[in-house]
Design a protein around this nucleic acid. Sequence first.
DNA 1: CCGCATTTGTGCACACGTTCACAAGCTCCT
DNA 2: AGGAGCTTGTGAACGTGTGCACAAATGCGG
Lengths: 244, 244
Amino acid sequence: MSPVEGATPVAAAGATAVAKGIPEATVARLPGYLRALNHLSDNGVATVSSGDLADEAGVNPAQLRKDLSHLGSYGTRGVGYSVAYLRFQIGREIGSAVDWPVIIIGVGNLGTALAQNADFGSRGFRVVALVDTNSALVGTEIDGLTIEHQDDLRRTLRDSGARIAVITTPPDSAQAVCDELVACGITSILNFAATVLSAPHEVTVRKVDLGQELQILAYHEQRKLDGLWPADDDVVAVVAGEAP
Amino acid sequence: MSPVEGATPVAAAGATAVAKGIPEATVARLPGYLRALNHLSDNGVATVSSGDLADEAGVNPAQLRKDLSHLGSYGTRGVGYSVAYLRFQIGREIGSAVDWPVIIIGVGNLGTALAQNADFGSRGFRVVALVDTNSALVGTEIDGLTIEHQDDLRRTLRDSGARIAVITTPPDSAQAVCDELVACGITSILNFAATVLSAPHEVTVRKVDLGQELQILAYHEQRKLDGLWPADDDVVAVVAGEAP
DNA sequence: CCGCATTTGTGCACACGTTCACAAGCTCCT
DNA sequence: AGGAGCTTGTGAACGTGTGCACAAATGCGG
């Protein structure tokens, strides 16, 4: 039993930073808002209402306002949000103000695709190192980056200064790579391998499984084929109820 | 402009009975269970307890049992679950018993990587068509598949019989592609483009944004650097004291 | 045949996330 | 100046998801 009674959330840390914890669900949506804002900015929009921004981001207006309220009060009642200002604030909160150096472990098809993904650059990430075990690949270049051997991971990490690691190796080696990364001090990992990684709790691990996404789609698709219609609003012609 | 909208509100199909409404959160975890089971099966394990399976899948044992209980009672008290049987049941529920034909729109780096991804095959998906607008690519082959031109999308869809579409085009063209797909009768779309797609509600759209995943990681990473420690349980050996 | 060890399935309580509805606040027009 | 018309920020209701704790069920050994 761990009587964590002092569940008091706030540490009452001055007015400076948002010392409070932003809900995970909100954090997951912030990048979407940021992109929506960038898009609006590109189109010359200077001010936007929660309704329009919510449309652009694909969420409910009330949700958007509540999410933003966790960051602070950056809107003006009766007017809306300044696109530039809100973009700056979210960007700062999310940490996309700085350039994050990223290392990619596993230069297969997916790893290569990610390394060449131009979108990363525009979002504040820079691929600074590529690593693989295949000695046929080591030494070759992708986008001006030389592929290093995985045995030199420790050195490569230190030299490149990478702070975020992306694992695109086969599933079997993923855990070993993860352990090595953690041993080298990496605390943020994006895992594309089809395995559950175990890591110390201070390390943030996110998993993206492309096959899994398809399987979830397949589930819904099958339901449609079976004629039973999944849950939308009220459209359901329910059975005759009968409850004990 | 394509006046595609088909926003036609449901036709109130007289579905028999919504036999079982499996919660979305559970559906999202089922593929993970399935993989865990396959892994165990490969290792010659015939029977597994909820605890061990939960470990393998990276979830709480109680959660696993509750999830499985939505499918039915496929376990044996005092013993556990038959790996083979449970695998069959989940596979059937999830629709991975059949081979799902998949079409990929946009043969850039990512699209190519996905097309060559061997993992899809082992999970019941088969890439049956590749489509792009770049005429330099059209006609070339990837893994024995000839790339078709996007103008022939309708025909390609019909010929290939694809039921699930993957969009890996640039963001600008994604919505147009989506509209065209919907017009051709596709009802399941996996979107890798950095845009929010709007589609009729009977179409299932899932979005995967790689940059977004990195940004979420960056947020957590920044928090760690700032010294304020995010939410874990009790492990908090946080900075020296504070308040009263 | 009976009790013991084990493990599932689930009712229940709690935490988290979402949406509604409305007061507070701003701008503009008369 | 004052009111009309918007839009934000948020309290409160609602729904969903999670995890605990325990009864029900099974196998085993004596």
